[in-house]
């Protein structure tokens, strides 16, 4: 007899692709089982009972059954749809970037509740009044840090001495800040005291706090110039949504 294996997870829909006449493959980032792909049958029909909870970015309680190669969605109860994200192109582009970053950085079926909570909180921040660039730069630093790829922001990656905010450099390839002496001899970009302090704050402060902050234009731009290549350097391929962050 074949055992039916159904289980419930808390999920965020991070990508989807149409399949056949009315089905869709959804890539879910779940709290309990990490990233997994599932078939949602009939989800494109207007009367589908699954459609609500499986929309892009939506947070849902989902019941899955083990299928032949992909899981099959049997129920989807929406928890939060993050509706405001779609009402503003900038928020939409930033949410897409967050979802794509997680999608590219993690392997299938590796549970990581902390990463799930990070993605959930960045979507919450984007859905509310948070400043999209501030949130995403914080998210980049936190996700990379959590997965062990984060930049060193306190000590020089060349010699290990603590780096003050003055005269510091930042190296994409070496993986973080450099003191004046080491930075001068290698390929490190200059980083202003304000930007370095902002980077430290973004690493330290919780996402909920970042949702209430807004970096000044010049700091945000400088961090973008440093972090964008830093993230890209650690990815297998550049993110498609990255070019829409400037919109």
């Amino acid at each position: 007899m074949r055992r039916v294996r159904a289980y419930r997870v808390s999920s965020l829909a991070i990508r989807h692709r149409n399949l056949g006449e009315a089905d869709r493959i959804v890539v879910l980032y779940t709290r309990e089982r990490g990233k997994l792909s599932a078939v949602a049958k009939g989800v494109r029909r207007t009367r589908s009972k699954l459609a609500g909870g499986l929309q892009l970015f939506s947070h849902a309680r989902v019941q899955l059954a083990a299928g032949r190669s992909l899981e099959i969605v049997t129920q989807a109860q929406p928890v939060h749809l993050f509706y405001h994200v779609r009402e503003d192109l900038q928020r939409y582009a930033h949410a897409s970037y967050a979802a794509e970053l997680v999608d590219v950085m993690v392997e299938d079926q590796a549970a990581d509740p902390a990463l799930f909570d990070l993605l959930l909180s960045v979507l919450q921040g984007l859905d509310e009044e948070g400043d999209p660039p501030t949130l995403i730069q914080g998210f980049q630093l936190k996700v990379l840090g959590h997965l062990g790829h984060g930049p060193e922001v306190e000590s020089c990656v060349g010699c290990g001495t603590r780096v003050g905010t003055r005269g510091a450099g930042f190296s994409v390839a070496e993986g973080g800040v450099m003191c004046e002496r080491c930075g001068g001899s290698r390929t490190a970009a200059r980083v202003t005291p304000a930007a370095l302090q902002a980077m430290r704050d973004l690493v330290e402060l919780p996402m909920e706090e970042l949702a209430r902050r807004r970096l000044t234009g010049s700091v945000r731009e400088e961090l973008g110039r440093l972090l964008q290549p830093f993230v890209e350097y650690r990815l297998p391929w550049p993110l498609r949504s990255a070019e829409f962050l400037e919109m």
């Binding site: 192109l89 582009a93 794509e100 829409f244």
Partner: peptide, 10 residues
């Protein structure tokens, strides 16, 4: 439709 993840912008 606009979809940053698909590389589809305005």
């Amino acid at each position: 439709l606009i979809s940053p993840m698909e590389g589809m912008g305005p």
